[in-house]
């Protein structure tokens, strides 16, 4: 049963790699990487569950975090060609555009 789960996730990951390679837009590629990462998180959780080792879940948490951060970074680079510009304002009241 768990073998079927792992195999199914692996198939889904392979399909994601196909989308990553085919594109066509940069956002398709970033989407493929993000979804691939989420499936990796699920797979690690499943593997940790299968062998009965909860410390695998620590690695899964790190994956989920890193996956989100690198998706934001990739998206930002494709959209703004920069890493340093803000995507959102820290405070909604400060530094209004008309100031």
């Amino acid at each position: 049963m768990l073998a079927a789960g792992v195999a199914g996730l692996l198939i889904a990951m392979g399909l994601m790699v196909v989308r990553l390679l085919r594109g066509p837009t940069a956002y398709d590629r970033v989407l493929a990487v993000n979804s691939f990462g989420t499936k990796t998180v699920l797979m690690i959780a499943l593997m940790g569950f299968a062998v009965g080792r909860p410390d695998f879940l620590d690695v899964a948490i790190v994956y989920a975090l890193i996956n989100f951060i690198s998706t934001i970074a990739l998206m930002k680079v494709f959209r703004l060609r920069s890493l340093g510009e803000p995507l959102a304002r820290l405070s909604m009241s400060r530094e209004t555009p008309d100031a």
Binding site: V62, I66, I69, G84, E85, P86, L87
Partner: peptide, 22 residues
């Protein structure tokens, strides 16, 4: 080592979303 990288990731997320100036 891993903790340091995760901490740096938090700071990088801050810089990515709110801008490196903040």
């Amino acid at each position: 080592f891993q903790a340091g990288v995760i901490l740096a990731a938090a700071l990088i997320l801050h810089a990515l979303v709110f801008g490196v100036r903040e």
